[in-house]
Amino acid sequence: MTEKVLEIRDLRVTFDTPSGPLEAVRGIDLDVEAGELLGVVGESGSGKSVTFLATMGLLPVRARVTGSVLLAGEQLIGASNKYMRSVRGRLLSMIFQDPLSALNPVHRIGDQISEMLQSHQNLSSRDAAKRAIELLDIVGIPQPSDRAGQYPHEFSGGMRQRVIIAIAIANNPKVLIADEPTTALDVTVQAQILEVIERVQERFGTAVVLITHDLGVIARVADRVNVMYAGRNVEQGTIDSLFDHPSHPYTRGLLASLPRPGKQRLKPITGFPPNMLNPPSGCAFHTRCEFAADICKGELPNLVSFGDLQTACVRARELPKSENFA
């Protein structure tokens, strides 16, 4: 096995809300290996963003975070603010869904990149500006030296997302977390942004965590996949084995609802994601699972190796073999 750069163990996040405590992440285990592209997939509200915001130390103070997150062997949960600041942007970077609002409208693009460089490296303003232009070039922005002097509103959505990637990789981080980086973009632009991310991963050996609710995106670029449901991971494994013979009923449902050539009708998963203020007992998926039995309501399933996959389903062994989605 290759080296693990990020090891998340039993991560739990609880928000105090006016309607009571809300446990958004309920014991996540997840590894990111050096240089890989890990996909994290799940419906909206399954806790993907919260998991990685907790990793970055970017959750609001009223969130209670427990468990362990090791970044290159260093514990991040409970680390001092000062330490977390030195980690953010240097070892760990994160880019967010909406490129239109993620850049500060009143500062020049070049300055926003330089700020990232100068806050972690001892660079003169001149050198930082030069490096910023190089970075714009790397993410595929034409005429980078002119563009560096412009403001965000002079860029299109796709171009802004490239700028945001440039900021994120400025200090050559170990892990780049991309939270739905293409969701807000046109289909054609989506593909370009995914290409940029892949290029960065290959060129700098950056491990990438690609968060999305779209398995189609994952299928295109990811090495491994982690499926999340109701704040837990329910299945993980390599992209090939997952598509070959998904084992968890939720994964099967996700794959069955993917549009594919030669298939007439999509089969969406019936029912709704659970209310996390009051999640179902046992396997949270039992309210929607076609294989649900009484046992599912009692036991909280943990990830168990099952073939090449790790699956959190108490009935995994008894289930009929799945259709091949590859």
């Binding site: 779209d214 609802s257 999509l266 998963i269 709704f272 994601p273």
Partner: peptide, 16 residues
């Protein structure tokens, strides 16, 4: 993934 987004939109009207 049309099925998923639809499910999410509907879920807001659900519950109490």
């Amino acid at each position: 993934m049309p099925g998923l987004t639809q499910g999410f939109a509907l879920s807001e009207q659900n519950e109490n």
